[in-house]
């Protein structure tokens, strides 16, 4: 299964990407997402599931089912857009609260045995070199923390260009 997270209008996304619903699970902005409140309920109250019931509470479990996670996001200051970041903030139940040491840094232990692949497509005109460097560092850090098998970062001026980039590989 491919898990796709994007910040585009659904109509625009469908026009550009044409992913089918059978092999892909798509997370998009329906206007109801709530911010993570830092309560750790997804670790110590309802392990593996966020306690905020707004339709985005199962993101961590969805990560565990995904062979590939594809993210399409406008680049904000060298990171994800607020909606995409909101989805990722709400996905920490994918990990356990406990710590391990990796490359002499502390990281969270894995809740699940799967190893997904992470592909991030940042779009936006006038993304600066500094922002690109920040974004590359960010996705690499996300890759370490989510224990992914591999990751890739692509920058395009428009979402349409991102669509053309992925069409052959992910359609």
């Amino acid at each position: 299964m491919n898990l796709i997270v994007h910040d585009l209008e659904n109509l625009t996304f469908n026009k550009i990407f044409n992913f089918n619903d059978r092999e892909n699970y798509i997370i998009s902005d329906n206007g109801s997402i709530k911010s993570c409140t830092g309560c750790f309920g997804c670790w110590i109250k309802t392990p593996g599931t966020c306690v905020i019931k707004d339709g985005y509470e199962n993101t961590g479990r969805l990560f565990s089912k995904a062979d590939n996670v594809l993210i399409f996001s406008r680049c904000y200051y060298g990171g994800y857009s607020p909606f995409v970041k909101n989805v990722l903030d709400r996905s920490i139940s994918y990990l356990l609260p406990f710590f391990k040491i990796k490359n002499n840094e502390t990281h969270h232990k894995q809740r699940y045995k799967n190893k997904t692949r992470l592909y991030v497509y940042f779009y936006g005109e006038q993304v600066t070199q500094d922002e690109m460097e920040t974004a590359r560092n960010l996705v690499r850090a996300n890759g370490i923390n989510f224990n992914v098998a591999e990751y890739k970062v692509v920058f395009t001026d428009t979402a349409e260009q991102a669509g053309r980039e992925v069409a052959a590989q992910w359609k």
Partner: peptide, 17 residues
């Protein structure tokens, strides 16, 4: 602010935007 998933948390990002 606290660090969330290696970066600025979404609510802070919205505010900064």
């Amino acid at each position: 602010f606290p660090l969330y998933v290696d970066s600025i948390p979404s609510h802070m990002l919205r505010f900064m935007a």
